[in-house]
Every structure is written in C-alpha cells, then in structure tokens.
C-alpha cells in the first residue's frame, strides 16, 4: 500500500513538471496552449539533437533550457500575443496549428522511432529504502525537481516584482499598462519561464523513458487533467492535482496494466463532477 502510494507520488512529480508550464501560461494570460505536450517533446528532441552534435548529454540537457526560454519569448511576442483577446478561439486554433507543425517537423527530422536521452545508467539506479522497498534514483530526482519548481514559482509569484507584474497583468492588463507595464512584454516573459519548465519536463521524460514525435497530445492531456483537478488558485493546486493523477494512475496500473491511464481519466471526471472549480480554486 505504502509502496503504491510512493510510486504514485513519484509519477505525480513528473506530471507536476508537465503541468506547471500550462498552469503558468493559463494563469497569467488565460491562454490555453494546446501545443503544450508537443513543446515538451520538442524539448526532449532538442536535447537529443544537441547531444547528436557532440555536446555531452548532461550539458545538452541544461543548454536546452535557455534556448527554450528564448523560443518561448519569441513565440509569445511574435505569434501568441496577436491571438489574445476576449475570444479564446484564435489562441486555440493557432496553438493547435503549432501542435501539428511541431509533430510533423519532428517526424520529418527524427522519424517516428521512440528514443531516449542517454542518462549513463541513472535511469536504472535505485535507492534501497528497506528490504522490500526501493525507489529509482531518477524518479526521486524528478520529484525533487518538481517540488523545487513548485516552491520556486510560488515564491516568485508572491514575493518578486516580476511575480507581482504577472499577477497584475492577469488581473487587469489595461490598468497594468496604465501603471507603466507593457503587458505583452510581461506575457513574453511568462511564456519564456513556462518554456523553461516545458523543456525541463521534456528532458526528464526523455531520460526516464522514451519520447516519440506523436507523444505530445498524451502529455497535454495529463497536464490538463492535473491543472484542472488542482484548480487555478495556485501552483500548490497544480502540484496537488498532479499527485492525485499520479496516484490514481498507479492504483489503476496495479489493478490491471491496461487500466492506469483510464483510472486517471475517471478520477478527472469525478473531480469535475464533485468539485468543478478544482481542489484549490482561485478565491476572489
């Protein structure tokens, strides 16, 4: 029982990293990035490509992060900012289009074969906790990074000038402009930050298992379920939603290997039914 819970929480750590970027972009800009999962996969392939060009795998995993941030800044500034407004449809259509472009570009460049990022054996090492209990070093590391990322984002939003600007443009972009902020620039910074998280999630997914160009939509779905179950109140909510999804899927896997993902969907529907605003709704 404890082991099951632990495995679920470790999986939840990965889902937290999938979900934080989505939560950040939705929270600041009310922008639903339907290409979110594809950008995660793009992050993993970015690290693979850098590695292929001769960079040490660990260096490649880190170097891909600032590149992702620049990409996120540019995409927001020159593409997504033009889609924002009262009507959510333009941003949905544009990110859906980006999703198709990324999937096909990856397919063209890297073929449909699943690949994984070289971890020098880290993915098979484990920590022995007791006679009957061991956890993988990599999943534990992923959980640790997910916790740091959640705490870090929460801190950034609550205590820094940039975080205050994020909240202000989210509340009322027109008045934020009156204060001297350039909302569109603040949006671009938010997306840059989100894309760093996205690339980190991609790299860790590639280290832990395999990635293929067509994996994106599945990751988007998990991120979605985690964010919506958590509610839009805070990054703690995203963490909680991810943990709930991870544990539920793990329980499902235990019952039958084919039931894991399906159990997650059922939990998602259940939460929508009993608490449609999510576990940590925004209180205003």
């Amino acid at each position: 029982m404890f082991e099951l819970l632990l495995q679920g929480v470790l999986l939840g750590g990965l889902y937290t990293l999938f979900a934080l970027g989505l939560s950040l972009m939705f929270g600041v800009m009310r922008l639903t990035n339907t290409a979110h999962g594809d950008f995660i996969i793009l992050g993993a392939f970015g690290a693979l490509a850098l590695n292929g060009w001769g960079l040490n795998p660990w260096v490649a995993d880190v170097v891909v992060l600032p590149i992702a941030a620049l990409l996120g800044y540019a995409i927001q500034r020159y593409v997504l900012n033009q889609t924002l407004g009262k009507d959510p449809v333009p941003s949905l259509v544009v990110t859906f289009g980006l999703s198709i472009v990324i999937q096909n570009a990856l397919l063209e460049t890297f073929s449909a074969d699943p690949r994984s990022i070289e971890s020098n054996g880290l993915n098979i090492q484990s920590l022995v906790l007791s006679d009957s209990l061991a956890v993988g070093v990599l999943p534990a590391l992923i959980l640790f990074i997910a916790l740091i990322a959640t705490v870090g984002l929460q801190w950034l939003f609550a205590n820094t000038r940039l975080g205050r600007a994020f909240r202000a443009v989210s509340d009322d972009p027109e008045i934020a402009e009156l204060m001297g902020l350039r909302s569109k620039k603040v949006y671009a910074l938010a997306t840059a930050l989100a894309f760093m998280l996205i690339a980190m999630a991609g790299v860790l997914q590639g280290l832990r298992t395999t990635v293929a160009p067509s994996d994106g939509p599945m990751l988007l779905l998990f991120a979605f379920e985690a964010v919506i179950m958590g509610g839009m109140g805070s990054f703690w909510g995203t963490l909680a939603g991810s943990m709930l999804l991870g544990v539920t899927q793990q329980v499902g896997f235990r019952l039958d290997p084919g039931w894991g993902v399906w159990a997650g969907h059922l939990m998602f529907l259940f939460v929508l039914l009993v608490k449609p605003q999510g576990l940590f709704p925004k209180t205003r």
Binding site: R164, R167, A168, S170, D171, D172, I175, M179, G180, L181
Partner: peptide, 20 residues
C-alpha cells in the same frame, strides 16, 4: 477604482512605481 484584486494593498501601491 479598478484595483488589482490578487494584489495586497501595498502591492497595489507599489505598482505605481512601475513607471520608474
């Protein structure tokens, strides 16, 4: 008035300094 609802009183005031 249009204050920023998710900002505290002091944070709302500090937004005025964004103009530099």
């Amino acid at each position: 008035r249009r204050l920023f609802p998710s900002l505290s009183v002091q944070e709302n005031l500090l937004m005025g300094q964004e103009s530099g």
